[in-house]
């Protein structure tokens, strides 16, 4: 294991984050505040409670998930795509490192960044509503696993993408709709039966449900199922990356 290399990639990626720390943090914080104003204050005043929780508090886990998923994906995809785009990837390809080390470096940095942003969102939301966390350890575990798995997904997208449009495509076309339709801002039990069934096909639904359970002790689906779903998703990403590593797909000529 080339630990120095992992460290170098991680530090380099994190320095990119800290260099633009204000930008990196300000936009998620502002958009979270907007969500609270729109969903919490405007709409929430007409829906007093969801599953025994005030609507404002109810949307906190969904908001954190929404941000963490999009941030982890975009950070990781950009992290590996950018060197390909400007050509500095030659250095990584000619270094005495393997794909596992490259993945740990880039995915690790993206996961830590998004974790950081997720925690910032959580802190921001306490300014608007009372947030209580029923199972803090489970909450951290769900958050970490989500950061990690979506950073893995982003890494795959970054390797696959041949241009900036493709880089934006999957987050825009797949992740955002899945997150919005996965019950970020409502409980799926509020949906008609047919749409409840459809929601069961949405993997993100399981993550949000499990994450919300760690806050309020209630879930749309059993928490064990949520755990299996996120573990399955992480394994799928790992398998894909292993396959990329085996075939040298899209990185080496």
């Amino acid at each position: 294991m080339n630990l120095q290399a992992i460290r170098a990639i991680f530090v380099f990626e994190m320095s990119r984050f800290f260099r633009s720390l204000i930008q990196s943090l300000i936009s998620p914080v502002i958009s979270t505040s907007l969500y609270f104003v729109v969903f919490g204050a405007a709409i929430g005043s007409r829906i007093d409670q969801v599953e025994g929780v005030s609507y404002g508090a109810f949307i906190v886990p969904g908001l954190v998930m929404l941000t963490v998923m999009t941030q982890a994906t975009s950070n990781a995809s950009f992290g590996i795509y950018f060197p390909k785009f400007i050509g500095t990837v030659y250095e990584i390809l000619s270094a005495p490192i393997n794909f596992i080390e490259i993945t740990i470096g880039y995915v690790g940095a993206a996961a830590v960044k998004s974790l950081f942003i997720g925690l910032m969102i959580l802190a921001t939301s306490t300014l608007f509503v009372d947030v209580s966390i029923a199972h803090p350890l489970a909450m951290i575990a769900f958050l970490l696993l989500t950061c990690l798995s979506f950073a893995l997904l982003g890494f795959i997208i970054g390797i696959w993408a041949g241009n900036f449009e493709q880089l934006q495509l999957i987050p825009l076309l797949v992740i955002t709709p899945l997150v919005f339709l996965g019950g970020s801002f409502y409980s799926t039990s509020m949906l008609p039966p047919f749409w409840q069934k459809v929601s069961l096909l949405n993997p993100v639904h399981y993550l949000i449900s499990g994450f919300r359970w760690s806050f309020f002790g209630q879930a749309d689906v059993p928490v064990g199922v949520s755990l299996v779903a996120i573990a399955g998703f992480t394994s799928l990403c790992l398998l894909t990356i292993w396959w990329i590593f085996r075939t040298g797909w899209r990185l080496r000529q």
Partner: peptide, 11 residues
């Protein structure tokens, strides 16, 4: 920084 990075990735 870029020089440090190079040294690091080469272990």
């Amino acid at each position: 920084n870029t020089v440090r990075f190079s040294r690091g990735v080469f272990g």
